[in-house]
């Protein structure tokens, strides 16, 4: 294997070490297989065996017939998803909201982690970190109610905006464009503290000696950040970013479901809420399985693409 390039963050190992490994000590690798085994068994049982259920996506599934005997309908369910302009709009909404969340959900925790990294007062640092981590634990049922109040025409946010900028109150949750904005911002607000943990753990792994050396070389803090901190975060950023691509068609059911209304259907309705409503009329397992499969395929293709690109351009194997 000539292409086995070590990850960029690693120093190339010594030639002797490589040769040793290449000789392939069978007993040593069988031990490695053994370590994967528990995860492998669990995955086969709980993930792969149930995958036979994917056939539902191609069936007119009737619960009492099971997936052995339900009628095959081919790609009908997929066609239905794309059958009308309204449904296409739903896919489009999902894509827009999810991709904005994806980008924001990556950048906000990163910036926050970098800012927090500059805090030298340990007590302050810890308190801030704990406080911003709290919203993650509130469900959208609860937050939805709170947002409805805070963002109402007479609510806190509008009061501040009116006082500061002397504008008309904004109908945040009743105007399609503002609705998307609120959905994305509130989601970032809810999750950035939790998302930052992984970056903070990553920062904690940086060897302090690197900073000391840079300091000796006379590098300022900004230069240190650019030269040491950010590069050391890039691998984890690529990993997190790539994996979240799998969610490109998940725009957040709970959140939208609790916030949307008749005024913002055109811009705020997403695939999952759509599937939910269709399912309410009739427990359409077939349709929701088809939609799930569609989302999975799209997510998987994107992940593979990102994996290839990271390997090709950054020379980094994400996993």
């Amino acid at each position: 294997m000539n292409r086995s390039t070590p990850p960029s963050t690693r120093k190339p190992s010594s030639p002797t070490g490589l040769r040793q490994r290449r000789r392939g000590n069978w007993r040593r690798t069988i031990a490695l297989d053994g370590m994967v085994l528990p995860a492998l068994i669990l995955t086969i049982i709980f993930a792969y065996i149930p995958m036979v259920g994917i056939v539902i996506a191609f069936q007119d599934f009737k619960p009492w017939l099971g997936f052995g005997q339900s009628n095959w309908v081919g790609l009908d369910h997929f066609q239905y998803l794309f059958s009308t302009p309204e449904n296409l709009q739903v896919v489009w909404n999902t894509l827009i909201i999810a991709s904005m969340k994806l980008v924001g959900g990556l950048i906000a925790p990163l910036v926050f982690a970098l800012l927090l990294n500059e805090i030298r007062l340990s007590a302050f640092k810890r308190s801030v970190q704990t406080l911003v981590y709290l919203p993650h634990f509130l469900s959208w049922v609860i937050l939805g109610g709170i947002l409805l109040d805070m963002l109402s025409m007479k609510g806190l946010v509008n009061q501040v905006l009116v006082a500061l900028f002397n504008i008309d109150p904004i109908f945040f949750l009743g105007d399609g464009n503002w609705f998307r904005f609120v959905v994305v911002v509130s989601d970032i607000w809810k999750e950035f503290g939790f998302g930052a943990i992984i970056f903070l753990a990553s920062l904690a792994g940086i060897n302090p000696a690197l900073y000391e050396a840079a300091e000796v070389d006379g590098a300022g803090r900004w230069q240190q950040t650019l030269a040491i901190t950010i590069p050391s975060l890039i691998p984890i950023m690529i990993v997190v970013g790539t994996l979240s691509l799998g969610n490109i068609l998940n725009a957040g059911f709970d959140q939208i479901f609790n916030l949307y209304n008749g005024l913002v259907y055109d811009k705020g309705d997403i695939i999952d809420t759509f599937v939910y409503r269709v399912g309410l009329v009739d427990g359409q397992f077939g349709f929701s399985a088809a939609v799930g499969l569609f989302k999975s395929v799209v997510g998987f293709v994107l992940i593979v693409a990102a994996y290839r690109m990271a390997y090709k351009f950054a020379n980094y194997r994400i996993f």
Binding site: R21, T29, T43, P50, M51, G53, F67, S288, S296, I303
Partner: peptide, 28 residues
């Protein structure tokens, strides 16, 4: 690395696949 454990690629993708694909509630 691949050179040290050749089957790692297969295993990894085997796991990653399950992040996205699942059979849904009924078979489970």
């Amino acid at each position: 690395e691949n050179s040290a454990f050749r089957r790692r690629n297969f295993y990894t993708w085997f796991f990653v696949f399950t992040m996205l694909f699942n059979g849904g509630l009924i078979p489970f």
